[in-house]
């Protein structure tokens, strides 16, 4: 080993130590942030801040209000970049009350229309129980992933 290699190895080590300590310091904060965000989206998808929720399974709740129904998590790995996580709320007759994407890494400006804070595209599912949605041109993969995930979730909830 010569000086050239050692100087690079030591630099790489220092960089590694720096990043892992920063990660260790902020890990808790980041986890709290994403849990808070998922919970806020959960309340939003029901469309009511007063309705009670009863936990009946992993990421699966019964909605305790006059419309009733369930809210549950669906994840899709068919997106353009990483997992897409959604909350889907349905009422007692199996119609969709609402859908919210609470975690995704789709391309900003192209695939992020699935995020309710970017566009209201996701609202087109409300009140439906059947298939048949137009895909978004330029973001076919992202829209297909979300549409498939929603109907897969509907089918599973009906069983």
């Amino acid at each position: 080993m010569n000086y050239r290699s050692w100087s690079f190895i030591i630099l790489a080590l220092l960089c590694g130590i720096l990043i892992s300590s920063l990660y260790g310091l902020t890990r808790e904060q980041i986890r709290t942030n994403s849990e808070d965000y998922a919970n806020r989206q959960l309340l939003e998808v029901i469309g009511s801040t007063t309705a009670g929720l009863e936990l009946i399974g992993a990421n699966r709740y019964r909605i305790l209000d006059e419309d009733g129904g369930l809210v549950f998590q669906v994840q899709s790995n068919e997106g353009y970049n990483g997992l897409i996580s959604l909350w889907i709320a349905i009422d007692d007759s199996g119609n969709i009350r609402g859908v919210r994407v609470y975690n995704h890494q789709e391309t900003p400006g192209i695939g992020d229309f699935i995020d309710r804070s970017v566009s209201d595209w996701i609202d087109r599912f409300v009140g439906r129980a059947d298939q048949g949605h137009d895909h978004v041109s330029g973001a076919t993969i992202t829209s297909r992933a979300v549409i498939n995930a929603v109907y897969q979730g509907l089918e599973e909830s009906g069983q």
């Binding site: 902020t26 965000y37 970017v118």
Partner: peptide
């Protein structure tokens, strides 16, 4: 790369919703 990773982590910790928008 170290500075970018640090910026990414810091944004996730303190500007979470902005990170949701421009994270990639």
């Amino acid at each position: 790369a170290v500075f970018v990773t640090a910026a990414d982590i810091i944004l996730q910790a303190w500007f979470f919703e902005l990170h949701q928008r421009i994270g990639l």
